[in-house]
């Protein structure tokens, strides 16, 4: 039997109310949504918040909406909602690829997009996927609502730029023509964290890569991104050779942790292979075979 330490429970009814509660409890309050990271941590006493602020009833945070040249994904969107979203599947198949292999179907009924990003686990698949897509995070504080590129969102393992009195509201993913995206993951068991995972997004004009995003998860990449490999590819023509070289560069610049999921050299090899593989699939989806 595992039971969290005692805490007070508040149910927020709106974004403003949630932020008011965060201000009121002055750093002692912690936001909870799906709870599938926080509750196990509280049971193990790795987390011991004095107050839980439940945002599950905050309708403003739910929903996936196309808004002009952006897809807006609410922080409270459950993993299965994103997985089942026809709009997301059509615009950003990388998100569907990733959601299909995040945890298991029952956990995906409960866990949220925003919660996964705020947890900032170094092995989080969505962190790599949204980084590849160059999404923006919208964060509400007591005074202002600010927008932060997701690539500046992660401060380090389990740490983000969201302040103690702030709330992640939504992700905004830019919709631009000529795009293709894909996510590939290697894990030891169904529903497990990645040994290594890579998300790639390409934006093409003809055969030329005009913009590129490569996100790495569990592979020790700074801010989840392979910047050097992106710089190499930008402006080049899509080809198997260029993608293989991008993989080599990404592998060289990441720093995979040695753990029970494998040694560093194996994970580096995995990084190179998965970068090339995800780029190939992303290009295919953008209409260019390599």
């Amino acid at each position: 039997m595992q039971v969290p330490a005692q805490f007070e429970y508040e149910r927020a009814t709106s974004v403003a109310h949630a932020v008011d509660l965060l201000v009121k409890y002055n750093g002692a309050g912690r936001v909870i949504a799906g709870g599938h990271s926080l509750i196990p941590m509280m049971k193990l006493r790795l987390a011991r918040p004095e107050v839980l602020i439940d945002i599950n009833e905050v309708g403003e945070l739910a929903g996936i909406v196309r808004d002009g040249d952006e897809l807006r994904i609410g922080a409270l969107v459950r993993h299965n909602e994103l997985l089942d979203s026809a709009e997301a599947a059509q615009l950003f198949p990388i998100l569907v690829d990733a959601e299909r292999v995040i945890a298991d179907p029952i956990v995906r009924n409960r866990g949220t997009v925003g919660g996964s990003l705020c947890q900032a686990d170094p092995s989080e698949d969505l962190s790599a996927a949204f980084s590849a897509l160059r999404a923006d995070a919208v964060i509400q504080g007591p005074q202002i609502r600010r927008t932060v590129p997701i690539r500046d969102f992660f401060v380090g393992p389990y740490e983000t730029v969201v302040g103690p009195d702030e709330l992640l509201v939504e992700l905004r993913v830019p919709v631009r023509p000529g795009s293709g995206s894909a996510f590939v993951k290697v894990s030891r068991r169904a529903g497990d964290w990645a040994v290594g995972a890579v998300g790639a997004a390409v934006w093409l004009a003809g055969d030329v890569i005009t913009e590129i995003g490569i996100g790495l998860s569990a592979l020790g990449a700074q801010n989840f991104v392979a910047v050097e490999a992106e710089d190499f590819l930008r402006g080049r023509v899509v080809s198997a050779e260029a993608f293989a070289e991008a993989g080599r560069i990404a592998a060289e610049h990441c720093d995979p942790p040695v753990d029970q999921r494998g040694p560093a050299d194996y994970k580096r090899h995995l990084a190179a292979t998965l970068v090339a593989r995800s780029l190939t699939l992303a290009s295919h989806r953008a209409g260019r075979e390599v």
Partner: peptide
């Protein structure tokens, strides 16, 4: 398991299966 891995505790919450060891009764 009490850690949302094993699924012995699955019940429906508002029509969706959830692992009830990882949902607060308050929710």
């Amino acid at each position: 398991c009490d850690t949302s891995n094993c699924g012995a505790c699955v019940v429906w919450l508002d029509g969706l299966p959830v692992k009830s060891c990882t949902v607060l009764a308050a929710m």
